[in-house]
Design a protein around this nucleic acid. Structure first.
Ligand SMILES: [Zn+2]
Ligand SMILES: [Zn+2]
Ligand SMILES: [Zn+2]
Ligand SMILES: [Zn+2]
Lengths: 130, 130
DNA sequence: ATAATAAATGTTATATTATAACACTGTGTT
DNA sequence: AACACAGTGTTATAATATAACATTTATTAT
């Protein structure tokens, strides 16, 4: 059984902000939000973000350089991530679809490459914006 | 039949460099490579990149902030892109797999979202680095 | 408990990636 | 000619991310 991760002070502060947010957050917007808590420099944010990603607590939305909390308990430490992204309102939703995940995890490239990890980003208009 | 796109001077210069490259190129590395041709500013590179992406001539590898030439004639204007990326040597290979592409293009999210586009990035070790 | 090791922090500076804003040029249309 | 439109050149600046180093705190081994 995996031991519940204990987070450091800064990691917890950053995770709290990301979890409370309605949408993806950018590193510098996180920074501005935590300056009252004594975090002053980008480094501190990026270090926390790196660890949180390693732990699978958050994911980076690569096309937006922004970060969201992981909502799907079964996304095994960011080895298999998929998101739907609204091009109008910026909403991001983590997709947890077992079939999709299995299909992609077992996908093997012709040229002898064995994949360890994937990230999939879908774009469109969400229900609200359509 | 779609008319062959005519590229502007700067677009052609940037595309040539990207097509000749063995791997993904970053915007500023493109810039340094074309200063002899009279292109001096990042804007000129980014404008060309934007247009080339629109035309489907190149793709952005989001996880690397780098650009590759499109190698698969059937990737309809960047609506459905997939890449395999070596975590060791930085090699990027565009995946054109009809089944994969069809599977993902017809994937619809539960929450009433209709996707217009996706980008998929696989990570692992290539044959050479394994 | 003490020493050794590893993980996290604080801080300053800097590198890298990307866009804003504005003036100008060339080309085709009416 | 007057207009629209895409592309260009240029300067400045914004936004994103990392390097390097000193210090502190937590964990582990003896
Ligand atoms: Zn997740
Ligand atoms: Zn929306
Ligand atoms: Zn392509
Ligand atoms: Zn490799």
């Amino acid at each position: 059984m995996a031991q519940a991760q204990i987070l450091s002070r800064n990691q917890q502060i950053v995770l709290d902000i990301i979890e409370k947010a309605k949408g993806p957050l950018k590193a510098y917007s996180i920074l501005f939000n935590v300056q009252k808590k004594g975090i002053n420099a980008p480094q501190q944010i990026y270090r926390a973000l790196d660890k949180l990603i390693e732990m699978g607590k958050i994911h980076k939305i690569e096309s937006k350089n922004a970060f969201v909390a992981c909502r799907s308990s079964d996304c095994e430490i960011s080895k298999a991530t998929a998101f739907s992204i609204c091009e109008s309102c910026e909403m991001v939703d983590e997709i947890s679809d077992t079939k999709l995940s299995k299909y992609l995890s077992s996908f093997n490239h012709k040229k002898g490459m064995k994949f360890k990890r994937f990230n999939l980003e879908f774009f469109g208009l969400c229900k609200k914006c359509k």
